[in-house]
Design a protein around this nucleic acid. Sequence first.
DNA 1: TTTTATAAATTGGTTAACCAAATTATGCGG
DNA 2: CCGCATAATTTGGTTAACCAATTTATAAAA
Lengths: 236, 236
Amino acid sequence: MKLEGLAVNDNKGIQNSIISKIKELINYKNLEPGDKLPSERMLSDKFNVSRSNVRETIQKLEFYGILKSIPQSGTFIANIGAVAINGMVDDILRLEDPDFKSLVETRILLELKTVKLASLRRSEDDLKNIKEALDAYESKALSGEDAVQEDLLFHLAIAKASGNSTINTFMLTITPQIIIDFEKYHVCDKNQAVIGIKEHTEIYEAIKEQNPKLAKQKMKDHFSVLYQYCYKVESV
Amino acid sequence: MKLEGLAVNDNKGIQNSIISKIKELINYKNLEPGDKLPSERMLSDKFNVSRSNVRETIQKLEFYGILKSIPQSGTFIANIGAVAINGMVDDILRLEDPDFKSLVETRILLELKTVKLASLRRSEDDLKNIKEALDAYESKALSGEDAVQEDLLFHLAIAKASGNSTINTFMLTITPQIIIDFEKYHVCDKNQAVIGIKEHTEIYEAIKEQNPKLAKQKMKDHFSVLYQYCYKVESV
DNA sequence: TTTTATAAATTGGTTAACCAAATTATGCGG
DNA sequence: CCGCATAATTTGGTTAACCAATTTATAAAA
């Protein structure tokens, strides 16, 4: 069997349920930041769910910085205040899956920044990596093949050169979904490859010459088509 | 025991090691997008690690959209091309923990966008939520107490009103670490509370009147101190 | 009473056995 | 050789028992 579409694990409901119960527990027991949560066994028993589910949920809350597990010691509430805990947990519970428009909007925002930062901070190694990604994209695009991957890798190389690890992580996070959506909505089907090469090259040159203003403008031009497409697709 | 500092799980090394081996396996066996990975048992056996570790690693790669687990069927490589897989996996392996400067830089970037979007898209409910957060912050700050949590919740309320779920998620992701760093570096210790109330109120008013340009400017003013502080702390 | 050494209990992490669903292999009938 | 029902196998997920480190309780010694 080959995987065609994308399936989503439906354990989100269980996790959210457990998150709610943990929140109730914290409020009911008046647990303060830094306090220890009941053990995983007690929680799974009290909530009537498997300990695996409890562990997964705790790991999720760890990702958002709400909890912190210490081996052989316990799970602790982060030192960020009860008010913030409640507010953030509510936000986490209400989080919805990102739509295409929100993804593209965010990508454009991030990349107009990374290209500026890369122009200012890029090392020689960074420049070499970007050039390699550019060449790979060019040869693939000229051959007439689909070059979405090489396209995105060029942009990721710029993100890496920005020297901002947070933005770099975020770019990595949204890239796969963007690739999938691109192919789903056939964003890059046209013969925009040749245009793309020119635009990519201009961006690269601006970064090379450490001209952040020009680099941002070239990136903006590069995104102009995508921008329109994004708001067109929205209604789909 | 109360948790004071922050400890980091050192299972990152094991995970990265497994990620590398999975990457090698994909390349060695010439697995294509959509193909099925060997079962968790075979991987844990071949890599000589526990199946739990394999599962955790697979979940991490699932988060980045590289893999996809289907119950009772197998783990599949996402449909995003072998080139992109290799490039992204390399990036994931090289990812470093976010530093304070990178966090603040990203936060400012995101919030200058959310405040603009919130001005354009906020519903009446959104406005009410922001107002509530503002009032909570005001009363806490006026009492002379530490109001970092209420401060951040105000900003999160704006992020929610932006209508961009991706940025909203990102804001939630970086907020806890920002709170911790703020208290660590004593960013908000001064009597900036009164100034903060004024600035927050101005931002709120601009959003209420749906004036994105003004809102962005007010947010920029609000961040001017933080901006300087960020680049000062960098050298610490 | 305080201190310290020792044992019991608790903890998150790990391992292995088990489960139900999905896949694959098998073999019968045509 | 093909079609199809059935059995055997494989799969990710779940459960429970186990482990080593930590914490707490206990009591002996000062």
